[in-house]
Nucleic acid binder design. Structure first.
Lengths: 212, 212
DNA sequence: TCATTTTATGAAGGATTCTTCAGGTTTGGA
DNA sequence: TCCAAACCTGAAGAATCCTTCATAAAATGA
């Protein structure tokens, strides 16, 4: 289980029939939309339910409180991104360093861009209760995956330190966030992605050359 | 002036006597502390006033509403950072590229670290109404300063494009944010700062070498 | 068909919040 | 000393919000 601190975030009831599955998905989607159109300040359980086309009572049958709703949406999104990045890291093992970086960064950007609206919406609640802990946990996952991948690189002198990997990932996330928040065209996305790859490649080349 | 959209954010009254100056500063400081200890959700005008040792009515004599209070604190902090970075960029003109980057990045990190508590607290309200626009405006300032500085570098083949500068600054901000949110020791700050400098140097070297 | 389980409803209680304003206190200068 | 301006107070109105619960509809399967 997820421990006692998260007890109040756990779903209240699991959907069994088909219609309730539809309902919870509608609620999730409505949460994103309300978050984007109204902001976190005006995100209300009633408003979310209204947008989802159900009543408030229905919402409270699946989520014990408002925060658990936000937490669930955040968790789902971050897990999805982490899985894609981990998969990319596994695929890129034993390849040359530059290609490793490229595949990892591109997987990250693509995962975030796949549902750019969700990514942007969630930036607004990422600092709420439970958010930081969750982000930290997911961050460790991607860092471990990246670290394991880099250790299989055939063309590096010395493996990069943990600090270097942290810096690289944090830098990449910052660049992605900046990109997401300007609602870029597909052309801008492509160019920015190239540059992010180059950024990480340059840095990794620098730290793996002499004593990293 | 700042335009009509920001009209409701402008201060209601300017302090004249000494005691009111003390009061508004106490309110600013209390805002940070409440933000850090209680989070944005529980940040209340009453709570801020209480923490500042004044009554709510006093708060509303200087700020027309709650948002203007948050906006003012955010604006003050971002302006301070931007000024420090601009000054560093001016100082570093005509120096070698690597040193330019070093001075700029270090100024940025130092400015954020000077009041790390404020920086962290403000991440929590940066997405509220008015925040994104303000951040965008300040971001342009630092980008222009950086761009102007880089154009005076004596040792580059071709100047970096705007996208490259944007990416570099966004990456640096991401790294700084990640650092700030882990409450680092002074040793960790020093190491991370070194790595950020190296990150930006490597990237700038790469994009200015051949056609950037 | 019918009993049981699952799902949906939405009015209302209880709590919190933003903001105002009428009335007080303090300050600075004439 | 005395007055006007500056400053402070905090109770209370109006609005909003979270959450519950009694009730009802729909689905399942025997």
């Amino acid at each position: 289980m997820t421990g006692h601190a998260l007890a109040t975030f756990e779903p209240r009831k699991t959907p069994i029939q088909a219609r309730s599955t539809v309902t919870v998905e509608a609620i999730s989607e409505a949460t994103i939309q309300v978050l984007l159109s109204q902001g976190p300040e005006r995100l209300t359980t009633t408003r979310v339910a209204e947008r989802a086309g159900v009543s408030v009572g229905t919402l409270y049958q699946y989520y014990p409180n408002k925060q658990s709703l936000l937490f669930a949406v955040l968790e789902h999104h971050l897990n999805n991104v982490a899985e894609k990045v981990e998969a990319a890291c596994r695929r890129a093992c034993h390849k040359p360093l530059a290609q490793m970086i490229q595949e990892m960064v591109e997987a990250f950007v693509d995962a975030k861009m796949e549902r750019a609206d969700i990514s942007v919406a969630l930036y607004r609640i990422a600092t709420d209760v439970g958010g930081p802990a969750l982000i930290k946990r997911i961050g460790q996952r991607t860092r471990r995956a990246t670290e394991a991948m880099l250790q299989t690189a055939p063309d590096i002198q010395s493996p990069p330190g943990k600090i270097a990997i942290d810096i690289m990932l944090a830098a990449m996330m910052g660049a992605i966030r900046s990109l997401l928040e300007k609602e870029p065209s597909s052309g801008e996305v492509r160019k920015s992605k190239e540059q992010m790859v180059l950024l990480c490649q340059s840095y990794m080349a620098a730290v793996t050359a002499n004593g990293g």
